[in-house]
């Protein structure tokens, strides 16, 4: 092993075998997805649960918090991906590697995304059927809306977790 050339920053060079790299864009996107959904859903519940405990159900103001939560999760996902991309590019440049080739999406990323979708799509029919049953039972719209939102978030987080596991621990067809 040669000595001094492993100090950072390094000159641009073609990566040697097994040279460490940074997390790929798709894996970063999965982390962003987890954080965006977990934090905004948590915030929604933090706002709404006290109201449920204190007010009669049909007076609970849940629509505004929900719209905020949905809007923020979209913004957080977009901004998170942008920053993750910039962070990755900077990190790679310091290591002397080319962001375009190291961070690109390839067929493995598509295969992992497909695998995650096949493992977590069950959340969607659960949401639709559950909401339908709640509507039939004539419960307050707060319960229906919150159910749709929270279970959908769980599904999105599950999807991201499956993807990250596939990247880290390995994934076979």
């Amino acid at each position: 092993m040669n000595g001094s050339e492993h100090k950072l920053p390094r000159e641009p060079h073609r990566p040697a075998d097994d040279e460490p790299t940074v997390m790929g864009m798709d894996e970063r996107a999965a982390w962003v997805q987890i954080f965006a959904f977990a934090i905004t859903t948590g915030a929604y519940l933090a706002v709404v649960i006290p109201r449920v405990l204190n007010d009669p159900i049909d007076e609970v103001e849940w629509v505004v918090p929900l719209l905020w939560a949905m809007g923020l999760s979209i913004v957080a996902t977009i901004l998170g991906s942008i920053f993750a991309g910039i962070g990755g590019a900077i990190h790679l440049t310091i290591r002397g590697l080319d962001p375009d080739s190291e961070l690109a999406s390839d067929s493995r990323d598509k295969a992992i995304a497909r695998h995650a979708r096949l493992r977590t799509y069950w959340a969607t029919p659960v949401v639709a059927l559950g909401a339908l049953i709640l509507a039939m039972l004539d419960v307050d719209t707060f319960w229906i809306g919150s159910f749709i939102y929270v279970v959908t978030s769980i599904g999105a987080i599950a999807d991201a977790v499956v993807r990250i596991r596939a990247y880290r621990r390995g994934f076979v067809g």
């Binding site: 790929g24 080739s101 390839d106």
Partner: peptide
């Protein structure tokens, strides 16, 4: 192959089964 270096590493380490 038109893939990233990470994918080749993953295949070599048995962490990814290619199509």
């Amino acid at each position: 192959l038109g893939v990233t270096r990470q994918t080749v590493i993953a295949i070599e380490q048995g962490k990814y089964s290619p199509s």
